[in-house]
């Protein structure tokens, strides 16, 4: 089942990329998390016909791709998860919102087409921004940032535990489904007769594993709390990085930069 292989591959790949020792990777995780959220908020806050303003927002992903020396190609496959639904929702805009704006030859551009386009671009930008966050910040660093903003420790701890065991369980599912498909040639998925037992067995095994993990924790003095070595302190460069981006993003949001350039060169 290539989907499982892909998932494991993707996990390892992201971890490798995020773990690189580059200056963008070393910026305080809270700064990167905050910037990502601010960026996405600004992107989705653009009006549905404000295509030119929105295009200007490409500046952030473009810059980070270059700064972090990331491959744009890798990020593309993440788009296919979110974009279909966005497109389905957007595809109807041209049908319902049909005020013509201008003609290109015999083709009439309508407001609906513009709003569909902005919707798709918003989708692309927000996915890219999340990708960039995870490509320059490891999950542990993000969890550290979440603890800094007082997300309850039980949620953060469990994200860490989940992350620790995801690849192991995906590997287990892969072995089970492979063993299944070897003995059931020609079947695309899991036959309904074994839905319960196949997943149920895996669930029981996971529960046993959890039990053993709990025992192992208790034997080493577990008292309900977790401590992690991840420590970051804010340094001057973090604050500068944050401030510079904040200014750039706000300027691009509130000053019609793209249109201004359009006047200059048009």
């Amino acid at each position: 089942m290539s989907r499982l292989d892909n998932a494991i591959h993707e996990l390892n790949h992201i971890e490798d990329v995020a773990g690189r020792d580059q200056w963008v990777n070393n910026i305080h995780p809270l700064v990167k998390l905050a910037l990502t959220i601010i960026y996405i908020i600004i992107v989705v806050s653009f009006g549905k016909y404000n295509l030119s303003g929105l295009i200007g927002m490409a500046v952030y992903p473009a810059a980070v791709f270059i700064l972090a020396e990331l491959s744009f190609k890798d990020s593309l496959k993440r788009l296919k998860v979110v974009l279909p639904f966005v497109c389905i929702v957007g595809i109807f805009n041209p049908f319902f919102d049909r005020i013509p704006i201008y003609n290109i030859g015999s083709f009439t551009v309508t407001t609906g087409m513009i709003s569909m386009l902005t919707l798709v671009i918003k989708g692309v930008f927000s996915v890219l921004a999340s990708y960039l966050l995870i490509a320059i910040t490891t999950i542990e660093e993000i969890c550290f940032a979440l603890r800094l903003i007082h997300v309850p420790s039980i949620i953060v701890t469990q994200v860490m535990l989940m992350y620790r065991y995801i690849s192991m369980l995906i590997g287990e599912v892969e072995r089970i489904t492979k063993a299944y498909s070897l003995r059931a040639p020609g079947q695309k998925g899991i036959h309904f007769k074994v839905w319960g037992s196949l997943v149920g067995q895996l669930l029981l095994r996971s529960m046993d594993k959890a039990e053993a993990v709990y025992e192992s924790m208790c034997l080493r003095g577990f008292n309900g709390n977790f401590y992690y070595s991840e420590k970051h302190k804010f340094v001057m460069s973090d604050i500068i990085y944050f401030a510079v981006w904040l200014i750039i993003l706000l300027v691009f949001r509130f000053v019609p930069i793209v249109r201004a350039f359009g006047y200059i060169f048009g």
Binding site: M1, A7, I166, L169, I170, V173, E211
Partner: peptide, 17 residues
């Protein structure tokens, strides 16, 4: 705590079946 973490990973893995 460990049960929640591992069950989360379990849900994650089974979503791919």
């Amino acid at each position: 705590i460990p049960v929640m973490g591992i069950m989360g990973a379990f849900v994650f893995a089974t979503q791919m079946i």
